[in-house]
Design a protein around this nucleic acid. Structure first.
Lengths: 224, 224
DNA sequence: AATCGTGATATGCTAAACTAGATCAAGGAC
DNA sequence: GTCCTTGATCTAGTTTAGCATATCACGATT
């Protein structure tokens, strides 16, 4: 699957979450089964143009073909017409912590707590509502920041000069994350999930729309 | 098929023609069979996201999901980064005549000459090359302008007050296009086609690109 | 006349989108 | 504990995209 496809899928998922819709709510809006939406969002379906347009429409998006050289300008325009990103200290903290988590996931791709943290923080960011509790967020982010420091300490050693794969592995083994840090990380992931759940449930569900008929018209196939 | 789908298809076809590519040339670029490109462009296939992205890429286009409220601004940006539209009198004449044909097609939807004229003029407009012969263009457009006058004469009568369907039909029968005008229109369609063919063949064919692998990666399906 | 290019159309096959519906695992609320 | 929500996963059937290939009709050129 190409990056371009992934971008489109991410945009669909992001829009759904921004609107506070569950997959079932979107399913009711569009008539596309929830199971199929799940598959689409996870990259397991290479959907048809008509399906893409239908889902986009339910999420107040339009599909456009843009000349390549106009893409930066278009991205700029879209960004400038987006809802204002909250400038609260809590939102900034969330954004920073999310970026830290993303970077750490490059170093520790198998650490599932980081994945959980990223997913929950991303959802919170999409919701644009992180509550007002800066201290709570800083506390959740503390183990993450400490892991970042830990990783940077050992990255200096690992990066110093060329090493064989064996040597790199040995350094990584020596650089095992202390158990206390892992436990704190697990707790942080749990707290982030709790915060996400609390804030997600504040969003009211919107009424469903009738499903428009987007199938190819039979007459349109009659080209003979 | 929705208008949005038609817009995407039109954009693909327009881009191909603007680049002076035949369906077979695009087929060689992308590996998509020419028969399938033909079907896509005529609205007979509801293509997959990966196929759309691939075709777009070969035509220097990117696919974007744009918030609905940002669409006018995006359209503006795309327009402003488009190649400059020639300001020659001949191009202006072509644009005007094309608009006239479009309007006439609403009045006479079954008149195949008008469809042929629109297709050929649209292709010429996409090529942005109409040659330099303003007089030739004006001559091709003459029967079209006369048909427009003819239509406007009878539209006044048909629009004056409410009429039954029978009365409207009688007026339309009385407003049959004179045979000479039909013949001149047929000639104009032929001339437009000739001009199109002459100018299309001036465009050199560009080298083909290797076909990138855009299929869903097998590992991507392994979510279990 | 022969040849070439163009878009449209046809055949036949495989894979997968899409649908309907059910279920699972996990978590949260009461 | 019960009940609900959420996203993920599964089964089974229908439809069609996409591919490979060939051919057609038409127009242009030589």
């Amino acid at each position: 699957m190409s990056y371009a496809t992934q971008d489109i899928i991410d945009a669909l998922k992001s829009a759904r979450e921004t609107k506070g819709l569950s997959q079932r709510a979107l399913s009711k809006r569009t008539g596309v089964p929830q199971s199929h939406i799940s598959k689409i969002e996870s990259g397991g379906a290479d959907i048809r143009l008509s399906s893409l347009i239908e889902l986009a429409r339910a999420l107040d998006l339009d599909l456009k073909l843009v000349p390549r050289k106009a893409v930066p300008a278009v991205d700029n325009v879209v960004r400038s017409t987006a809802p204002t990103i909250p400038a609260t200290p809590a939102f900034k903290e969330l954004t920073r912590t999310l970026e830290t988590v993303k970077k750490l996931r490059v170093t520790y791709p198998e650490l599932t707590e980081l994945k959980k943290l990223q997913d929950n923080f991303q959802t919170l960011k999409n919701l644009r509502n992180v509550g007002k509790d800066l201290e709570h967020l800083r506390e959740i982010g503390k183990p993450i920041r400490e892991l970042q420091k830990f990783a940077e300490t050992y990255r200096g050693i690992a990066d110093a000069g060329r090493r064989t794969a064996e040597q790199i592995k040995a350094i990584q083994d020596a650089a095992k994350i202390p158990v206390e840090q892992l436990e704190a990380l697990r707790q942080a992931a749990h707290n982030a999930q709790t915060l996400r759940n609390q804030l997600v449930h504040i969003i009211p569900e919107q009424p469903s729309l009738p499903r428009p008929a987007y199938r190819l018209d039979e007459e349109e196939n009659d080209h003979g």
